[in-house]
Write a protein that binds this DNA or RNA. Sequence first.
DNA 1: ACCTAATCTGGCATCGAGTGCCAATATGCG
DNA 2: CGCATATTGGCACTCGATGCCAGATTAGGT
Lengths: 185, 185
Amino acid sequence: MTSTAELSHIGLRLFLERGFEATTVDDIAAAAGIGRRTFFRYFPSKNDLAWGDFDALVASMREHLAATPAELPMIAALRVAIVEFNRFPVEEIEYHRQRMRLILNAPALVGHSALRYQSWRTAIAEFVAARAGGTPDDLLPSTVGSVMLGLALGAYAYWLAHPETELVTAIETAFDELGAAFGDA
Amino acid sequence: MTSTAELSHIGLRLFLERGFEATTVDDIAAAAGIGRRTFFRYFPSKNDLAWGDFDALVASMREHLAATPAELPMIAALRVAIVEFNRFPVEEIEYHRQRMRLILNAPALVGHSALRYQSWRTAIAEFVAARAGGTPDDLLPSTVGSVMLGLALGAYAYWLAHPETELVTAIETAFDELGAAFGDA
DNA sequence: ACCTAATCTGGCATCGAGTGCCAATATGCG
DNA sequence: CGCATATTGGCACTCGATGCCAGATTAGGT
């Protein structure tokens, strides 16, 4: 009767109340009224609880990128796609912020994020490979994939530290400033 | 009697022979002739075994950056520092490659790398903050820190997949291609 | 409603990483 | 040599994660 979404909310609430480390899987299972063993059927790990269905978002970013007109320069295309990927309805923003604060601060989750972001980077790399001709293993695709992730994470760090700003604005500004910095290198 | 370097070599050898997951801390301790408990006094975790004294390298990169002439544009300064950070004596290159292949492929180590690279990113962010005026928490410093890490990781991925190339060349090329891509955005 | 097959559940045992505690051992120094 | 100080490693424990299996639940056909 418990859904993954429900379980995720229960877990997230406990993480925010007591901290990620201090919350055990037993705590979460007990709070949800399920067995510990069952928890691991809903989520492959305690770490994954904090990630909604990220994979669905990555899939939609893939589609967005695939539908991008070829005239748009590569970086400009990525800029639009990444901004859209990170645009959330107003009512979800606060929730998203808390979730991301957890993911980007709790050490175990920071580590886990490197694994979860792999699919995101691959989506970018495949787009770049398709654009530039070649494979996602080539230098430019793999570098742009990692670099775009870096850009997004930099913007997130800023957004989390400065609650008055907007995430999409931070991302746009990061693109501008980075373009300028590379411009006069 | 056992030094950290010695222990690190023993562990790395086992990781390469049997794989990271398949090697337990007990195996490593036994191979080194020490107790399991003692292992954890030399290294805080099994994951850290694969990282030499990365912190010393980061410290020297910090010094290099601090000594950079102010006339050199920021990205150019970072380029030199990152290339030098990743320049190793010929006889160490093969060892370094194996170590990095492990770190960037074994899932547990990929995750752990996100934690270890934090100090590297901070070093970059602090340099950028000093250059641009402001704090490392500002948007440009934190973004450039993450982006430079992304660039380096992209170059590493390429280098690991293409053994015939040189790491420093891959990094230089990554800077060139990224500059060009941002140029016509 | 009823029975059967497929699925879901959760208890139990086990593994492996990591940590606190403490007694035994080794080491440095006067 | 003898004392103070590290270093060592055994033991017990916590917690995440996984295999196994029996019991419960659900779906579907009659």
